[in-house]
């Protein structure tokens, strides 16, 4: 028996919008720790890891570890039927081949339930060890989204370079080149407007902008984004989900021919 009641149902709606274009089908894993997911895109270039900790739910009952295979496009269709202020409860019985999403309006005058078919997904689970990164950049998530969108109108790849001068995003394409440099800036009114650069040593890596732009669909989940870079590892683009956990995107770099 599984029953997870999330008062801020809009979080789940935003999570689905953030990942449904990157991943088609995925197993949601439910354990005492929380509601989580790890999935790769179809070309195995990017990976998304989601964690919504059990403490973040108003009610969290998970009698035994359960993995539920869902088509994310179908799940998104169902969650779009929930209002932004609705409380969402996810329910499943042991051994059932369906999951139920229950939506309650804030004043309890409307209750809807949507039952979705589960699917068997033979997905590969990757171990992601803790790593020391050469550079970690925290910046406003809207700024990062703007840069990725702007650069993708010029080129297909972005070179992200961190030096003591700041973080530089560069691209080149048929019509020309573009460089955006963000310097550390902590003299801002609100902490989420700051750009903070922690650099152990300079690093420069190249990534496909198509994936970066896909990751920025998580922007509504968090005011800030944290980008971790090391020359021999995939980039990690992390959006913290307030009080609950995170959504992390990992992207393998491109290397010279």
């Amino acid at each position: 028996m599984l029953e997870l009641r999330l008062v801020q149902g809009s979080l789940l709606k935003k999570v689905l919008e953030a990942i449904k274009d990157l991943v088609n089908d995925a197993n949601f894993d439910c354990s005492a720790t929380g509601f989580s997911l790890q999935a790769m895109d179809s070309s195995h270039v990017a990976l998304v890891a989601l964690l919504l900790r059990s403490e973040g739910f108003e009610h969290y009952r998970c009698d035994r570890n359960l993995s539920m295979g869902m088509n994310l496009n179908n799940m998104s269709k169902m969650l779009k039927c929930a209002g932004n202020d609705d409380i969402i409860t996810i329910k499943a019985d042991d051994g059932s081949d369906t999951v139920t999403f229950m939506f309650e309006s804030p004043n309890q005058d409307k209750i809807a339930d949507f039952e979705m078919k589960l699917m068997d997904i033979d997905s590969e689970h990757l171990g992601i060890p803790e790593a020391e990164y050469q550079a970690i950049v925290r910046m406003p998530s809207s700024e990062f989204a703007r840069i990725c969108k702007d650069l993708s109108s010029i080129g297909d790849t972005v070179v992200i370079s961190v030096t003591k001068e700041g973080v530089k995003f560069s691209t080149r394409g048929d019509i020309g080149t573009a460089n955006v440099v963000c310097r550390q800036n902590t003299t801002v009114d609100k902490p989420e407007e700051a750009t903070v650069i922690e650099m152990q040593e300079p690093v420069s890596l190249t990534f496909a902008l198509r994936y970066m732009n896909s990751f920025t669909k998580a922007t509504p989940l968090s005011g800030t984004v944290t980008i971790s870079l090391s020359s021999d590892l995939p980039i990690v683009v992390e959006y913290k989900i307030a009080e609950m956990g995170y959504i992390r995107f990992y992207l393998a770099p491109k290397i010279e021919d």
Partner: peptide
Amino acid sequence: SGIQLSITEFYRST
């Protein structure tokens, strides 16, 4: 431009 590496080249199946 460039060769796209795969995520599975960095992280192994568990």
